[in-house]
Computed example of a mutant assay.
Amino acid sequence: MRLGVHLVNFDYPGGPAAIGPTLARVGAAAEAAGVANLSAMDHYLQIADMGLGDVDAPMLEGYTTLAFLAAHTRSVELQLLVTGVTYRHPGLLAKIVSTVDVLSGGRAVLGLGAAWYEREHAAFGVPFPPLAERFERLEETLRIVRQMWSDDDGPYEGRHYRLAETINSPQPLRRTPIMIGGSGEKKTLRLVARYADATNLFAGPHSSPAQVKAKLDVLADHCAREGTDYDRIRKTVLWAAPVTADAEGGKAFVAQLAGYAEVGITEVHVMPFAAEPVGFVERLGEHVVGALGAL
């Protein structure tokens, strides 16, 4: 099982001036630890109920952050977990992710979801349509980015988006993986089967491998209907709770993940909630990465 680190807290000792140097050290620590994926949230405002401060706590723009991390890493994948479909026009999103991929030497992943944080949309004046429309926009966005990352540079005509040309130069250095976040059985997992390379589900102390397996079974059914090879879909989870990464806590965490590995999960993303992410990543390398890799 691979390990990803999902950055959610940017309130570091030393204030805003410390954010850049801290993230540079996170990148170096992730490489040394054997972390497979570095991700950040895609939000304008901090999520108040995560215990990381109110909405005025520091929050970085996601793709700018990935570009910075690209310069301070060599091999880890880079993505947002996940981009809300409402935050950027899909043509620009394809261009942005292509740029991250080119500048990182082919390490970008596009994470996409239907968006949910209405308060930040209102705060920044970004339209927040009803859920059904957001899912329509999500599917159109998936079609647009796939077209822009192909040899087809012709127009795109959809219900919500119309592009006269889908020119994208330079193209990504590799076939950029697409991850869809969420566990909705009727829409989200159907979109995974139809368009994506990876699914991201929630797991934690209050979930069980059986619950995740039930979602994967639904995904397998969608794959069968869509003619998609279920085995090629990367199955990942975001661990929605703090992880203690010392020797004892790391051993307990790996033991919890064993059941998820048995049902097909191949990657887990963990969050450094504390304001010392470098030490957290270093401890993951010492106590977690190797043991997870053996599952």
Results as ranks from 00 to 15, higher is better:
G227M: 05
T188D: 00
I180D: 01
S183Q: 06
R232V: 13
P177Q: 10
L201I: 02
Y195D: 11
K215E: 10
A224K: 15
P177S: 09
P209F: 07
K215Q: 12
A193V: 12
K213G: 08
A224Y: 15
D229C: 03
L191H: 03
T176M: 07
H206M: 10
R194W: 09
G204Q: 00
K215Y: 09
E185Q: 09
G227I: 02
A220C: 08
L191Q: 03
L189G: 02
D217H: 04
C223M: 11
L191C: 05
A203K: 12
N200T: 01
S207K: 14
C223A: 13
S207C: 12
A220H: 11
I233L: 03
P209C: 06
K186M: 11
P205I: 12
F202N: 05
S207N: 13
S208C: 09
A214T: 04
S207M: 15
S208A: 11
I178F: 01
S208L: 07
D231Y: 14
F202D: 05
K187E: 13
A203S: 15
K186F: 01
T199I: 13
N200E: 07
D217T: 15
V212T: 15
R190T: 05
S183G: 13
Y195W: 11
I180K: 02
E226H: 02
D229A: 06
P209M: 05
R194Q: 11
D197G: 13
R234E: 11
D231Q: 15
D197L: 10
G204F: 03
D231G: 15
P209W: 03
G184Q: 04
H222M: 09
Q211D: 13
G181C: 09
R232N: 11
L189D: 00
R194F: 04
T176N: 02
D231N: 15
L189I: 05
A203H: 15
R225C: 08
A210I: 03
V212A: 14
